[in-house]
Amino acid sequence: MKVTLTVNGSHRELDVPPLMRLIDALRGPLGLTGTKEGCAEGECGACTVLLDGDPVCSCLVPVGQCAGRSVTTVEGLGSIDHLAPLQRMFVDHGGAQCGICTPGMLVAAEALLRRTPKPTEAEIREGLAGNLCRCTGYQRIVESVKAAAELRGDRGEGAA
């Protein structure tokens, strides 16, 4: 089945089985391996991407349901050479250790900050409640998101 969709702002056309999981389409034919797979059943959030701006588990989305829609992955936030402020804050504040949960955390945090540019700690924790981390204990992740919100606020990058 031909599926056309927008991935990180670029128009892409795929010829894939429609029930291929979005995560497999991203990591395979689309060559975007930033998105990680943890549990494969919607529990851990490692595979989180934005679908039309909302966070979803790409392990539970058939690519055929993404036709005509827009997908944002961690690669869409920034690159190694040009880290987005949110990514930079995860580095500076120890929000990433092994890094498996990090792409999903970043994408979930991005979704949060777009809608809620100045989140309370409770809002940050709710926004990241679907993302598990086995390394950091979460505190540093929450601090990274707080710092990113402040930075974005200063630069007027709040709502997208």
Partner: peptide
């Protein structure tokens, strides 16, 4: 229900 990722779908 679940978390945001589940609520969105």
């Amino acid at each position: 229900v679940g978390a945001l990722q589940i609520q969105a779908r």
